[in-house]
Amino acid sequence: MYGLKPDILVDLPEKYFCLTDYEKVAAKWCPGCGDYAVLGNIQKLCRDEQLDPAKTVFVSGIGCSSRFPHYMKTYGFHGLHGRAFPVASGIKWRRPDLHVFVITGDGDCCAIGAGSWIHAIRFNIDLTVMLFNNEIYGLTKNQTSPTSRMGTVSNTTPRGSVLPPINPMQTTLGVGNVSFVAQTVDWNPPHLYATIQAAHRHKGFSFVHIIQRCPKFQSDLVEQFTAGKDKLYLLTGNEGVELDDVVIKSFDHTVEHDAHNINAARSLAEDPDNIYLGVLYRNTKAQRYDEYGVHNIGYTVEQKMEALNSELNKYAV
């Protein structure tokens, strides 16, 4: 009928997931918050990648962005301040069938959770990590964060902060066994989407630094970024992100970059004047701890009983 071959039906998925399969309640972030852009793009990514909501887990810590899992119709874990990494690692380690995303903020990741951040990079478990960096503590109402620029006026530094910030890109690229590091901005949705898609598709700990606005406590950052458009460089090259020409043309500057070259990546990350968007570093050969985690899953009770008995034999009187 209609000249269609019946075997095309064989490839149809059991169920096609629509955006509504990922959308839960309306988010309660401030109007103009960069988090909204990420949420919309993540839902779109889940739909486009056809991630089964029952097999997808969003793990977060504490902070404005960490409310994220509550707005997804997937499994979620909204845990403790700074502790999303160990929880997400524990979830993924022995469950290769789950897609695990980590949502963290600059306070959550770079301050209280910094220890686990460093080690999560080294463990290189297959997690898609998004650091929402708005350079301020929002949920606790306007305190300086470790990524706040020097001179930031906040409730804890009313005369301006006195230390230069931590650079999350530099830090991540400095850890042994680093596997995937990318950078994007919340006000360029196509680039944001393409970057988190590349991160999701990378097998390993994929770290995406999202530079974003806090309209409430860092509103002048928006102007700084939009006014400083000439400071944004788009990274091009065959290991970068897939973008339409239109999006590429919207950037004033592009830089050809080899994402396999860690030294080049580190120089870009350390550049005090410019911001480079795209994939800075990618290493598919980095050792993955979750590959070790799944090497002996699915033992039967009989196998476990045998193992126990054989141990007891060694201690038998």
Binding site: V57, F77, L80, P86, V87, G90, I91, K92, R94, S116
Partner: peptide, 11 residues
Amino acid sequence: GFAIGSSYAGK
């Protein structure tokens, strides 16, 4: 935290 994540995921 790791143990809790693992248990949450059924292990």
